Every structure is written in C-alpha cells, then in structure tokens.
Simulated scan of single mutants.
Amino acid sequence: MREFLKNMKVSFLLASVLYIALGLVLLIWPGISRDLICLSFGLLLLIYGIITIISFFVHDSRLGTFRFELILGIVAAAAGLLFLIKPEFVKSVIPVVLGIYIIIDALLNLKRSLELHSLQYGRWWVILVLSLVSVALGVLILFRPGMTADVLIMVIGGVFVYNGLSDLWSIFKISRITKEYRKNNPIIIDPIDIE
C-alpha cells in the first residue's frame, strides 16, 4: 500500500509539472496552441474511433460490452471528424472544457486543504485560498465568452501554470506534514501497510 501511495505522489508531481509546461506553451504560443490542440485531438479521436470500430468487427462475440465498444468507436470517430472538419466550433468549446477541468482540479486541491486541516497544519488555509482562486479562475474561463480567443488561451495558460505551482506546493506540504506527523507519533504497525 505504501508503494501505491508513493506512485500516486509521483503521478501528482508529474501532472503538476505537465500543467506548468502546458501553461507555458499556451502563454507563449496561444494561436498555434489552439490549432495544434484541435488538430491533435481530432486525429487521436479519429484514429482511436476507427481502431475501436475495426476491433468490434474482428471479435467473434458481438454481445454485451462489445456493443458499447462499437458505440464508443463511432462517437470517438465522429468527434475526431468534427475536430478536423469544424475546427472553429471546437476551438470555441475548448475553453469550456478546460474551465471545467480546472474547476474539478481546484476542488481536489480544496480536499487536500481539508486533509491538512485534519492533520492540524497551521497554514492549511493557504491551500484553501489557492483552491478558491483556482475555482474563480476556472469560472472566469467558463463565463467570459467576450474575451478574444488568444487572450482566453493565454489566461488558460496562466491558470495552468498557477494550478501546477499550487499543486506542487500542496503536495510538498502534505508530504512534509505527513512525515513530521509520523515522526512525532510513531506507531508499531502502520495501518497503511496492513492489507
């Protein structure tokens, strides 16, 4: 179990670094980023859809979950074509999807702040404030259609950089406090190791 938690920490760290990298790309090259995101997602969805549809017809049994596989393949291929044929429509939807994603991630950070509070960390409220700011930025992205596309992409990039940095900070703090807590409250059998 301890190994699983360690792998989760590494995954969260990598995700935070990717947030920062993606945010910097969106900040520096907003126009190219929109076009590249649209083209990349379109190609990936189309290829995934085609492979899933072919996979459905290759299998001997076309019952149960394989029907879902066919539906998923058709939806993915159609979405991929939409990304490639109507990129302007998709570009207008991307900020909404990213705004929702930022809000969800900020709510996860909010949960981390409450975990720090339960561990009696004195500055748990800092992560709480950072999480609330992230939620506000995500809502801004969702409900500001008047912004030009490039400015909005740059705002999203800035939010990603901010989100990645706040994630790194909260992961560092939670890890440090957990270590201090275990050091000050030693136990013979760690409940995390019990399976």
Rank of each mutant, 00 (worst) to 15 (best):
V126Q: 08
V139W: 08
L107F: 08
L107H: 03
G122W: 14
G138L: 10
F143Y: 08
A149S: 14
V135M: 00
W125M: 04
L119P: 10
I141T: 05
L142I: 00
I127M: 12
L152M: 08
R123D: 13
L142E: 07
V129R: 14
F143D: 08
L128W: 05
L137R: 07
L137W: 00
I127H: 09
G146M: 15
L132R: 06
L108A: 13
R123T: 11
L107P: 03
E115W: 12
E115M: 14
D150T: 00
V133A: 13
D150G: 01
G146D: 14
S113P: 03
W125L: 03
Q120A: 14
L130A: 14
R112V: 08
Q120M: 12
A149C: 00
L137N: 05
L140Q: 08
P145A: 04
L128H: 10
A149G: 05
T148H: 12
N109I: 10
M147A: 02
I127D: 09
A149M: 10
P145T: 01
H117C: 09
F143I: 08
T148V: 00
K111G: 10
G146R: 15
L110T: 00
L128I: 07
T148I: 02
E115R: 04
V126R: 03
W124Q: 05
A136R: 10
I141N: 08
N109T: 09
L108N: 06
L128G: 11
L114Y: 03
V135L: 04
P145Y: 09
L116H: 11
S118F: 09
L137H: 01
M147C: 02
N109S: 12
M147D: 02
V126Y: 11
L114V: 01
L119S: 10
L137I: 05
M147T: 00
S118N: 15
L114P: 01
L132E: 09
L140R: 04
V135D: 04
L110R: 03
R144D: 09
T148G: 14
L152D: 02
I127R: 03
L107M: 12
L119Y: 13
Q120C: 07
L107R: 01
W124G: 01
T148K: 12
E115C: 02
S134E: 13
R112D: 08
L119T: 07
Q120W: 14
G122Q: 15
S131F: 02
R112T: 03
L114N: 00
A136M: 08
R112H: 11
T148R: 07
E115I: 12
D150L: 07
W125A: 10
L108F: 10
L142K: 02
Y121W: 15
Y121F: 12
R144I: 00
M147N: 02
P145E: 06
I141H: 02
K111F: 11
V139I: 13
A136V: 10
K111I: 13
V139R: 06
V133D: 06
L137Q: 06
S134K: 01
L116F: 04
S134P: 00
V151Y: 07
P145K: 02
L130R: 13
L114K: 01
E115K: 06
R112M: 11
